[in-house]
């Protein structure tokens, strides 16, 4: 109860550090979810609706990547963007941008895999009808995506959930730098290590609140779109 009270106090007094951490968290989660969905949803739709040579191998690879441990993803991205790495000259390490890249590496396979599974199971009727109408393949793909938007919303929300709750990769590539790359999860970890449990719990409450607000907003958007 103390933690919840403290969370409300931090929110309503507009604690500047909390607002900055919230801003970085939302920016990182928004961009990593958006980029992952822009890549993963069309890719998953293609994978779920087309048969081609090597599809079984590609699905196995995708399922492996869906379980990629965040610290491994963080290490990989760290190795790529470190000073002596292939992309070291871009000087992106310990910035929000590289945190977004690491998260995309983690989330894109999840979005692609979930979308492909859904399309394989449920989109057969849409495909058969749309192709039977002689629609071009781009239009068929678009119809599949728009017709399945309610189900795909849960894929997007899963991606957002994974992004906002992720700690391993972002702490490696972001460095948890105060006023720069600190996000909610790394802040919670830091406060817990410092023994400041109630503050860490307060941050946890705020994180839950954000997840709830995003879920409600997404459901409302889909409901509105349905009655357009």
């Amino acid at each position: 109860m103390d933690a919840f009270r403290q969370a409300m106090h931090l929110l309503f007094t507009l604690d500047p550090e909390l607002l900055q951490i919230l801003g970085v968290t939302m920016r990182m989660s928004f961009f990593s979810t958006t980029i992952s969905c822009l890549i993963g949803l069309p890719l998953g739709t293609l994978l779920g609706t087309h048969s081609f040579r090597g599809k079984a191998f590609l699905k196995k690879l995708l399922h492996t990547l869906m379980g990629l441990p965040p610290v491994v993803a963080g290490l990989l991205v760290y190795a790529l963007f470190t000073h002596y790495g292939p992309f070291g000259s871009l000087h992106l390490l310990f910035t929000v941008r590289v945190m977004v890249i690491a998260q995309c590496l983690l989330i894109t396979p999840v979005v692609t895999g979930l979308c492909a599974s859904y399309m394989e199971q449920s989109a057969a009727g849409i495909l058969e009808t749309a192709r039977g109408m002689g629609l071009p393949s781009g239009r068929v793909l678009l119809l599949c995506l728009t017709e399945s938007r309610t189900s795909l919303l849960s894929v997007v929300l899963s991606a957002f959930g994974r992004s906002i709750a992720e700690v391993g990769a972002v702490s490696i590539v972001g460095g948890n730098i105060q006023w720069k790359t600190r996000v909610m999860t790394t802040a919670i970890l830091l406060e817990t290590n410092k023994g400041n449990f109630s503050f860490a719990l307060a941050l946890g409450c705020i994180l839950l609140l954000i997840a709830f607000v995003v879920n409600v907003a997404a459901s409302w958007i889909v409901k509105e779109a349905r009655y357009d």
């Binding site: 039977g132 002689g134 728009t146 349905r226």
Partner: peptide, 14 residues
Amino acid sequence: QPVLYLPQRCYAFR
């Protein structure tokens, strides 16, 4: 070509 096909199970789009 072109071919049009009406499946047995009809699907209603939104």
